[in-house]
Design a protein around this nucleic acid. Structure first.
Lengths: 148, 148
DNA sequence: CCATTTGCATAGACAGTGAATATAAGTCTG
DNA sequence: CAGACTTATATTCACTGTCTATGCAAATGG
């Protein structure tokens, strides 16, 4: 297969898998809220505007979202000493715990599917692990870069 | 790596990739609407209740969703001759075209990311293609099966 | 036939989101 | 250092998507 054809085939397979996986995510919380908690877990406290840009929503939407998360005890608001306009949003222990549980549920769902693969197929995926992790890193960088 | 550890590592990588990909999907339409159109493109005309179960929403939600899609010209309602209660929802040519465009956009996004991989990484993904397609098939079957 | 079941539509309520705007704090300019 | 501008967040209003509860018409089974 040509390199170009390979990209198209891999892209199609990953797109199909990703769209199907997206439909199975738990709906006890909006996708944006879950993504925001995951971002906080990954990068530490952030300001509202920063989070809004990272998740691709407007600032008012993020303000409302943070208010709900705060009422649920998943995040805390903390003022910034050097700039009193700023609200720093911090993950609480309950929030961190929620992120871990949700992530584990997603990983478990994939593990169940992997259980239906042949031994050779699992081996092939193990060999492709560095590539998958690299793709994830490239995606993260691409998103962060294009928003700033 | 043990087979068990392998599943966990692959699951984590795929989950991470899927959740990141989900956030980049176009937002000109709800996830459910896009998924419904994709289901219609994949399996042909379906009745409302059937679509609601397939997408994991209630029947009233699917009724409302189909109404919007119909107003946009992406689907058509057709009565069923043998059972006059039934509404068969059919994809129009415009709807099929939208599904193709959206899918292509998603595939393109992955292709761009794949362009940042090394040659060896691409080779590994090509070798894992059958496994990825098998996973997609397992997921589809799992969802269809658990809802009926 | 009449009661029940099935398939879809409607009504009412609520969460999430965006656009426009308000408020308050910081920063710059002359 | 006073006033204008910019930045960070909050508020308001409207709209969409979803749910639960319910209504209605067609099919089905004694």
């Amino acid at each position: 297969m040509s390199r170009r054809g390979a990209s198209a085939a891999i892209g199609a397979a990953l797109y199909g898998l990703a769209t199907r996986a997206a439909r199975r995510l738990p709906r006890d919380m909006s996708l944006t809220s879950a993504a925001t908690l995951a971002t906080l877990a990954r990068t530490g406290p952030r300001r509202i505007t920063d989070l809004a840009a990272a998740e691709g929503v407007t600032q008012p939407a993020m303000t409302a979202l943070v208010r709900v998360l705060e009422e649920s005890g998943l995040v805390e608001r903390r003022g910034d000493a050097s700039d009193k306009r700023v609200t720093r949003v911090c993950l609480t222990e309950a929030g961190a715990s929620y992120v871990r549980m949700r992530r584990q549920a997603g990983v478990d769902a994939f593990e169940r599917l992997i259980g239906g693969l042949t031994h050779d197929e699992v081996d092939a995926l193990v060999a492709a692990l560095p590539a998958l992790k690299h793709l994830e890193e490239l995606e993260t960088r691409d998103r962060d870069g294009s928003k700033r």
